[in-house]
């Protein structure tokens, strides 16, 4: 859970790391603050890339998750069973394993007719991260549908609503509210998980941080630059977390 107290602690750690680095600085070398300023544009570019990956992974994961979640509440046992297996698999497989799997399974370009369509790494990483999101969104949907009192289904049927009408017009509109907080929570988790893409060679913020520290070769830069990146993630994810908790409190089922 991201709290403002954590943010203050993080900021304090960041400032402290800079102060320590400044004190230990060797005269004649550029200071750590100068280095951070110098590399900020590049880091920002990398961070935007992380956000891009998180947007698309969330989009794809949510669309696929809604379909999969609908299958989870299907009245047909084979559909329910199959989707259960899919959900269990993708919810319980480590994200990094899924990422590796997708990275090495998919080609780097497609040939359709005579044209070559490139399929860059970051899109593959996006798909890899969308998989666990899909499974979790499916579970959120199933949970939300099942949390609606079953009496409503019976009441709807007695009013001659079909199953589809009941689901679309009565049940799902109530579910959206309940799904929103956990969905946003997963988005925050996903955003933080985009740094996993650095392991499979996508040039996102963590990859760039490693390249920067190696380009500078300054051991005193390590802690400041990593806390700097951490702070960026916090600044982005904290409002989401805050809003999630507010929504949760408002929609709480009593």
């Amino acid at each position: 859970m991201l709290t403002s107290r954590a943010g203050v602690a993080l900021l304090a750690a960041f400032v402290a790391s800079i102060v320590v680095a400044q004190v230990q600085a060797i005269p004649g070398q550029p200071s750590v603050v100068e280095l951070l300023v110098k590399w900020t544009p590049l880091l920002a570019k990398g961070f935007l890339f992380n956000l891009l990956i998180s947007f698309f992974a969330m989009l794809v994961g949510t669309l696929a998750g809604v379909l999969l979640g609908s299958a989870r509440i299907s009245p047909r046992p084979p559909v329910r069973g199959m989707s259960w297996i899919v959900v269990q698999f993708f919810r319980n497989a480590p994200w990094l394993v899924l990422l590796f799997f997708v990275m090495f399974l998919l080609p780097f370009e497609f040939h359709v007719g005579g044209t070559t369509i490139p399929f860059p790494d970051w899109i593959k990483a996006t798909l890899g991260l969308a998989l666990p999101i899909m499974a979790n969104v499916a579970e959120i949907l199933r949970g939300a549908v099942q949390s609606i009192p079953t009496a409503q289904w019976d009441a709807a049927r007695s009013l001659a609503f079909s199953r589809r009408q009941t689901l679309w017009k009565i049940i799902l509109p109530q579910c959206v509210k309940r799904m929103l907080p956990p969905w946003m929570n997963w988005y925050a988790i996903l955003t933080m998980a985009t740094t996993l893409a650095s392991i499979v060679g996508v040039s996102e913020v963590m990859t760039l941080t490693l390249r920067i520290t190696n380009a500078e070769g300054r051991t005193d830069l390590l802690i400041p630059i990593y806390s700097y990146v951490l702070l960026w993630f916090f600044v982005y994810c904290w409002p989401i977390s805050l809003m999630t908790r507010r929504l949760e409190a408002r929609y709480e089922v009593r």
Binding site: L42, K45, L208, R211, I212, N214, A215
Partner: peptide, 14 residues
């Protein structure tokens, strides 16, 4: 390489 100075590394413009 983009992380192995001075054989292949990144400059501030990326």
């Amino acid at each position: 390489k983009a992380d192995y100075k001075p054989f292949g590394y990144t400059d501030p413009s990326g």
